[in-house]
Simulated assay, not measured.
Amino acid sequence: MSQFDGDDIEPMDEQTYNRIGSQLGELGLLDWKSMYGGGYGRITALGVDVVEGDAPSPISITLNSNNTTSSNTPISGSHDVQLKEIKDIIQHLLGLKTRFHKSTSSGYFLNTEDQAAFGSIVVEVKTLLDETLAENSDFVRQLITTVNNGSGGFMGGPSLACVSEVEQLLRGAVRTIERRQQAKPLEFAPAATKPPYVDPARIAGLQSLQGQAWDYTKLIQLCGELNIASKHDCHYAVAMLVRAITDHVPPLFKMASFKQVVANYGGSKSFKDTMAHLDSGLRKIADSFLHEQIRQREIMPNAIQVNFSQYLDLLLAEVIRTNGIPGTPTGSV
């Protein structure tokens, strides 16, 4: 799973930190809670998919895996076209304010054509704000409230106050968009792609043994599930699956237990030493995962703690070497 590497991000003040979190929250990438002086949150399922490239990003996010200098792309994305259109609409509203007619009895009003133009402007503005500030943002909600409250004046059109309020609302939106464009992009630095815990060539080698004296279906399944657990950083499951594999294979070496494999198998000294380390190190870690009861404080395991992949690879290679039919390709051993 991709990881957020804080070392690649310059320090930021709490206000900026909270603003970025709020923006990502509006887009559904974070479950964000703002609070005085900052905020906190966690990444959503959509956020995970975006970071790992499984879903398109609604904003511009620089994935920086080689410490290159970040671009000037704003956190909320580059919206120069929309920004210019909003500014043009503000000028249009200024012109529209001069087109109000004064009635001696009912105040100011727009003619039918200008009323229709204002309605079109409102729809267009809402679309532009949705594109630049996320759907149903504070500005969009306020726009809808202002138009609803300011319409229905003389002859049913918008009041002069309504048009003025929309103009000021858009000026505020422009300032907000420009501030966001000046913000440095948030970077997610994914960890280097890690190899599968069990090399696919080993699994292919085990599959080539099918149809002989032993049924390797369960062993192949355990290796596949081990790769899935490792990919998703399920460290408890990784240790338990490796332990299950070592408990599963001794009959292939004509032994009843893995301890007997370590003590009595007639392989090379390096193989025996490696298996001894796999047995002693793995067994203690897996046993602690399985049998330790709840404590007042816990420290979660990490990938390093459960990384017995090299030792397991040597074990599987020996299984393939000693149980394969001579002359049959069994992968690289």
Rank of each mutant, 00 (worst) to 15 (best):
177 I>S: 10
178 E>R: 14
178 E>K: 14
179 R>T: 08
181 Q>A: 09
184 K>F: 05
186 L>H: 00
186 L>W: 07
187 E>V: 14
190 P>V: 13
190 P>A: 11
190 P>C: 10
190 P>W: 06
191 A>Y: 00
191 A>M: 04
193 T>R: 12
194 K>R: 14
195 P>F: 02
199 D>S: 15
200 P>E: 11
200 P>L: 13
202 R>V: 06
203 I>E: 04
204 A>T: 09
205 G>N: 04
210 Q>L: 10
215 D>R: 11
221 Q>I: 08
222 L>Q: 11
223 C>P: 09
225 E>M: 09
232 H>F: 04
232 H>N: 09
236 Y>I: 15
237 A>G: 10
237 A>K: 08
238 V>A: 09
242 V>K: 05
243 R>S: 05
248 H>N: 07
252 L>R: 10
253 F>V: 13
254 K>E: 04
256 A>P: 07
257 S>Y: 04
258 F>R: 15
260 Q>K: 15
260 Q>G: 09
261 V>D: 02
264 N>V: 11
264 N>T: 09
267 G>N: 04
267 G>A: 03
271 F>T: 13
272 K>P: 03
273 D>Y: 01
277 H>E: 07
279 D>K: 15
279 D>Q: 15
281 G>M: 08
283 R>V: 10
283 R>H: 06
284 K>R: 14
289 F>I: 14
290 L>E: 10
291 H>N: 03
294 I>H: 08
296 Q>P: 03
296 Q>F: 10
296 Q>H: 02
298 E>I: 15
298 E>Y: 06
298 E>G: 06
300 M>D: 01
304 I>R: 14
304 I>L: 15
310 Q>M: 11
312 L>V: 07
313 D>R: 04
314 L>G: 04
316 L>G: 00
317 A>K: 15
321 R>P: 03
323 N>Y: 05
